[in-house]
Amino acid sequence: MRALQQTIPADASAIPGAARRRGSGSLGDKVFEGLCTGAGVLVLLTLGGIILTLFIGALPAFKHYGLGFLVSDAWNPVEDHREEYGALVSVFGTVVSAILAIIFAVPVAFGIAFFLTELAPDWLRRPVGTAVELLAAVPSIIYGMWGLFVVVPFVQVYIQLSLGEYLEQIPLVGFIFESRSFAGTSLFTAAIVLAIMILPFIAATMRDVFQQVPPVYKESAYGLGATRWEVMKGVVLPYTRISVVGGIMLGLGRALGETMAVTFVIGNANRMPQSVFDPATTIASVIAMEFPESLSGSLKQSALFAVGFLLFVISFLVLALSRWLLRSRLKA
């Protein structure tokens, strides 16, 4: 061993060609570092450009309406030769439809992930998992067309007409289900379509993180006599809670910004809904429906830029909330 050590030069530069290889490596590292830095800066510049474009376009509307734009439910392109626009209805529809979609999607996604990781036989896991992932590849406009011809009639016949009277009699919350419109296109229908759209993202995330739990943890719990549900509740969920929350927030972000599918089934009514079965609108659907008809530089176009800017702010707040939740979970 001592003889071997004596044959190795103490200075690596004494090895022939080492200095040349080290110099080329240093150049490669600098190029790689520059490319990575440029990619990061490009993301910041792109984000800043989007924010700046939206804000500049929205500035005339903010100056004209002030803070009243945020709390006004008016959306009248022509009213006594005055244009009145407000963001309350579209913001309300965006937030409520996304929250309802999360309420519908999360339990189903958890059931799918639990089935695939704990209950399904090996021959069935791959086909079901592939089917769930294929749902994410369906274009949103296809979801919208399917929702218009399948989900809308289903909600109209089997929920509003069949169960509406019973839902209205539920204490304290029955007013939420009072049906004033029986067209089928409503906030509730949009939430169902959104839930189906975000389901594969949440379910795939849960399945992947559930599979990362060390088997010894679950086997130890089973050895103590725990049931499958007790193992999931006491071992798997605590171990994966951070990633589960991240997957849910990913689905929420997708639901907030969805456009075409919602436009097909929500009814596109610029008035405040009184129940979940009333037609409504969202920020994305308002922009999709009315932006092509707006004149360049008009107050209407500025109002559309303003609601787009508000959608960006809402998405940012959701992301910030998810980061805060994850950070608090890590500290806990």
Rank of each mutant, 00 (worst) to 15 (best):
I196M: 09
L163N: 13
Y158M: 14
I198K: 11
Q211K: 12
A101V: 07
F115Y: 14
P107Q: 01
L163R: 05
G174K: 05
V108R: 01
L199S: 11
I196F: 09
A98M: 13
A131Y: 02
V108N: 01
I202F: 09
A113T: 00
D208W: 07
P127L: 02
L172A: 01
V150N: 06
E118L: 02
V96A: 13
P139M: 08
L194Y: 05
M145S: 02
F114Y: 13
S181R: 13
E168F: 07
I196T: 09
D208H: 12
I202M: 09
L124M: 14
G129W: 08
Q169R: 10
A191C: 06
M197K: 08
V128R: 01
E178I: 03
I112T: 01
R180I: 06
I192D: 00
I142G: 01
L194C: 13
V138Q: 02
I198A: 05
M206I: 03
E178P: 00
I112Y: 03
F114G: 08
V95T: 08
A101D: 14
I102C: 11
V132N: 04
G129E: 11
V173I: 09
V193D: 04
I142C: 00
G147D: 03
V95Q: 08
L135Q: 14
L163D: 10
P139F: 07
A120Q: 03
L172C: 02
A109M: 12
L119M: 13
V96P: 10
V157Y: 05
D122T: 05
A204P: 02
L119R: 01
T189F: 04
D122Y: 10
L124V: 11
G164Q: 15
P200T: 01
L124A: 15
T185M: 14
T205S: 14
W123C: 06
F175W: 06
M206Y: 08
A195N: 09
V173L: 04
A137G: 02
Q211C: 11
Q156L: 03
V108A: 04
F104W: 10
S181N: 13
T130A: 12
Y166N: 10
A98E: 05
L119A: 08
A203E: 08
I202T: 03
V96R: 06
P121R: 01
D122F: 03
T205P: 08
L187V: 01
L172Y: 12
I112W: 00
I142K: 00
V128L: 11
G184S: 06
I192Y: 03
R125A: 05
W146P: 00
A101C: 09
P139I: 05
S90H: 14
R125L: 10
A120M: 09
V95F: 11
R180H: 15
I103H: 08
R180G: 12
A183I: 03
A195L: 12
P127N: 04
Y158R: 14
T189G: 06
V155Y: 07
A136M: 13
V108L: 03
I202R: 07
F201V: 13
G174Y: 04
S90K: 15
A204C: 02
Q160T: 06
Q160C: 09
V138S: 00
V91W: 14
R180K: 10
